[in-house]
Design a protein around this nucleic acid. Structure first.
Lengths: 132, 132
DNA sequence: GTACAAGAGACAAAAACGATCTTTTGGGTT
DNA sequence: AACCCAAAAGATCGTTTTTGTCTCTTGTAC
């Protein structure tokens, strides 16, 4: 019932990128150092973000990472779900096999409401807004 | 970012109790069997619920568990927080030491909004409503 | 005082979390 | 072409949390 460090770190890193001159490539070491997260771990996290198309990367000298889209067009939800998986109040909402005892679950609709609210809030916040 | 089995089991058990004649003591074995959760585990969970005053218990022959208050006066949030701890979007909202890098965190207010929304929804649902 | 059922606490396997390290791949430079 | 540089990929690894189980104790009713 809460963000893991992976999520927290991803947000820190992405907000840092969002504060840079758009398109400018930044080394993962620099990001890691200034937002205070372990470099190797952040590297892994950014690998995933790259694969999912949230950031673009370039290898070799002069390489690094940059946001794949303008900061105003990347939502907090995208970042979180990229590293943590889909926001889900209870397994039963995603995984039907977990819940269908006796056919009907009265709590089910509550989980849906929770998810939708959370997603809505997180959708409404962009990286640009988090730059202050 | 989701309920654990403990939370899920606690809800199942409490809803089952809420469906019984008020005040009637039910054996944990019966509860466990009909809501389909491991008995020993549910026993542990209910131990905690008793300690926190959500259910009352009686030992010995004819003992068992019953809701400590009317089902309409026990919220889903109470049950969840009793077993999972306080609902918290990010450690940084509860544990200041986790977040105060450079003093100000722009994401902080978002976590608060998320928490309040979730808590609000869960506060608004009582066990009675979950009985259908 | 005996049977019964919850309370308490120790223990343990399995999964998730939080990294770290090494090797590979690809891009620039000389 | 040879060589650095930095990300990509994958293996590994210690710690914590989850998900239980088991045993023993305590309290209650008959």
């Amino acid at each position: 019932m809460g963000l893991t460090r992976k999520g927290e770190y991803a947000i820190r890193g992405m907000v840092y990128l969002a504060r840079q001159e758009p398109g400018k490539l930044i080394l993962v070491n620099e990001i890691a150092e200034t937002v205070d997260v372990p470099q190797s771990f952040l590297a892994k996290i950014f690998q995933g973000l790259t694969r999912l198309g949230l950031v673009r990367s370039s290898r070799g000298a002069g390489g690094g990472f940059a946001l794949a889209r303008p900061a105003a067009e990347i939502s907090l939800r995208e970042v979180i779900e990229a590293v943590e998986g889909p926001i889900c109040a209870n397994r039963c909402v995603i995984d039907a096999s977990f819940c269908d005892r006796s056919g009907n679950c009265t709590v089910h609709p509550v989980w849906h409401r929770v998810q939708n609210q959370v997603r809505g809030i997180l959708d409404g916040v962009s990286l640009a807004e988090l730059c202050d």
